[in-house]
């Protein structure tokens, strides 16, 4: 598997991280190096092995259907970089 700069840019775009052409050039060999090393995992025979689902044997606990959180709009909005009238705001989205 070889990652070229176009792939780096595509992945960066999926991850919503703006990168320059120079960044992509720099990252491509770096990521190739890491991915190449990771690929040794392919050597392991995992034919009859289940993927790990829980690190420590345990299953999901369920909560009762009770409203435990009251209105905390002020706390929720307190750190917002931008907002008004009780809303978070973002650049206008055209759907």
């Amino acid at each position: 598997m070889s990652v070229d700069t176009a792939t780096v840019k595509k992945v960066a775009s999926l991850a919503r991280i703006a990168i320059s052409d120079a960044d992509a050039e720099r990252l491509a060999p770096e990521l190739n190096n890491i991915l190449g090393w990771i690929e040794q995992l392919g050597e392991v025979d995992t034919a009859n092995v289940e993927p790990t689902t829980a690190v420590i044997p345990n299953s999901l606990r369920l909560r009762e259907d009770v409203v435990t959180e009251s209105d905390q709009r002020a706390a929720v909005l307190a750190n917002a970089p931008q907002g008004e009238h009780g809303f978070f705001t973002v650049p206008k989205v055209v759907e």
Partner: peptide
């Protein structure tokens, strides 16, 4: 009301 039923 907007954002009044929002937990952390």
């Amino acid at each position: 009301e907007p954002n009044s039923q929002v937990s952390l």
